[in-house]
Nucleic acid binder design. Structure first.
Ligand SMILES: [Mn+2]
Ligand SMILES: [Mn+2]
Ligand SMILES: [Zn+2]
Ligand SMILES: [Zn+2]
Lengths: 145, 145
DNA sequence: ACAACTAATAGGAATGATTACTATTCGCGG
DNA sequence: CCGCGAATAGTAATCATTCCTATTAGTTGT
């Protein structure tokens, strides 16, 4: 239910406030630690559930768009990928890699940059068609894992 | 031990051959299923161990460079991130997002493209210094999870 | 062929992030 | 206060991945 309105409960409000305070891109359990200082009785499940609910609604971002399961590729040349949000299919894409991005960053960052990766997200040809049919009745949870 | 030479055992050879046959970017357990047709006694642990060993040596690629643990961000504006391979720290980067990539892909792909994400990888200022010190004695497993 | 030694494997247990489940609680209109 | 749907706390289950250990395969020297 990606577009549904959400009630701003105490727990959700505090999670959001704490996440807005930090610049560290915390993990779910790090958010849990922050929130627990103000709501000692909150449960980890509530943190996970609400982080998920809020990212579905675009109130926050979830990083590392890839699913948990790793994928492997015998092609070690530099190329980018596109992943289907619904079925998880991964394909190569036909855009050339963009080293200009890396050069630009090397000048502005204190990190020692080793590389970068780009992943497009969308719906593959078959899921795309399936989605257009059922768009009317089911808003589709976008397969977000 | 990223740069060490590797012996091409029967199991490794078959894993590599099967991975080279497909274009599907299979997961570890999908590789296991493929390999098991030829080596019915191979264990899942061996598949995981050797996929990891071969990707460390650049013989294959591991996709979804992000760790398993999700990170969250209250900043929902479009921006890219850089992740430290050693300590997992994630920072925002100061390069503007590259919509030209997405436009280019939309013309060439059958996917319905919804977006893309870019993640740079490298060493953060503190891990970078620490790494330079110990570079002599320990080759450093690059923190590859 | 045999012993000694090392690297790799099979199989199963352990781990850790995430999700599912369920009884209880909360908030709210009537 | 009552009834009811949404949300929560606490815990169990899931599932990809890693760890562990006894066994095996390969290698070198005799
Ligand atoms: Mn590929
Ligand atoms: Mn950010
Ligand atoms: Zn699909
Ligand atoms: Zn670091």
């Amino acid at each position: 239910m990606a577009g549904t309105e959400i009630k701003l409960t105490e727990q959700r409000r505090v999670i959001l406030e704490e996440l807005r305070k930090v610049r560290t891109h915390p993990s779910a359990d790090a958010v849990y630690d922050l929130v627990r200082k103000r709501l000692p009785r909150i449960s980890l499940g509530t943190v996970y559930r609400n982080l998920e609910a809020m990212s579905e609604r675009g109130m926050i971002r979830k990083l590392g768009g890839c699913q948990c399961q790793m994928r492997f590729d015998a092609d070690v040349t530099n190329h980018y990928h596109v992943r289907c949000l619904k079925c998880g299919r991964v394909d190569d894409v036909a855009v050339e890699t963009c080293e200009v991005l890396e050069r630009a960053l090397r000048e502005r960052s204190d990190y020692a940059i080793l590389g970068h990766h780009v992943e497009f997200i969308g719906f593959c040809p078959s899921c795309r068609c399936a989605g257009e049919d059922e768009r009317s009745d089911q808003p589709e949870g976008a397969g977000e894992r």
